[in-house]
Amino acid sequence: MGGAELMEINWQFMMTTLPLYQKAAWITIKLGFGGIVLALIIGLICSIVLYYKVKGLQRVVQLYIEISRNTPLLIQLFFLYYGLPKIGLTMSENTCAIVGLAFLGGSYMTEAFRGGIEAVSKTQIESGLSIGLSNLQLVRYVILPQAIAVTIPSLGANCIFLLKETSIFGIIAIADLMNVTQSVIGMYYRTFESLLMLVVAYLIIILPLSISLSWLERKIRYAEFGN
């Protein structure tokens, strides 16, 4: 096997293994989506806790953020999948994947939401209060519209980051893209074709998101600043 083999790309082979890759990509997307949605919810709740400085919970959230951001997802998954069952908490591999991703992602989403909330200046809030807006109306008409503009780029970047992190799910026996690639290489020795399909699969999953995010960022920048 050598460089010459590289030149003959076996398209037929790729066609036959395509279903495997499709299935694996689909699993990645589903698990990734689940983890992201959960992470967004965690992030929203935690950012509200931090903003209103809720007693007791504030410390817990801060601790959570530090732990989640300073440890790799791989270890978090191992701990969830192999460690927790030992104290009686067993979860399926899919559940572990989603929980792990949400645990990691929640802290990043919290930072994103917080950035948005804090971007709305105090004087804007006073301005709203001075025309008699209630707290709820303040959130709805003044804070939220402005916070979202700041938050969306960060949220989008976090989503892309989390989708990339899903590549690790193979270690807890999930038939994801990396696993499929490894098996295909192991069984058929079609290294180039399988790697190519792997890259294309991730491009298909992530590239559209990345491009839409850039487009969205540009649109928001225009709406806020007119340039």
Partner: peptide, 17 residues
């Protein structure tokens, strides 16, 4: 865009092959 693990695979398996 491409996850780091994928790059590790590309270099590890790809270069070897």
């Amino acid at each position: 865009i491409i996850p780091i693990l994928v790059w590790l695979f590309i270099v590890f398996f790809g270069v070897t092959a």
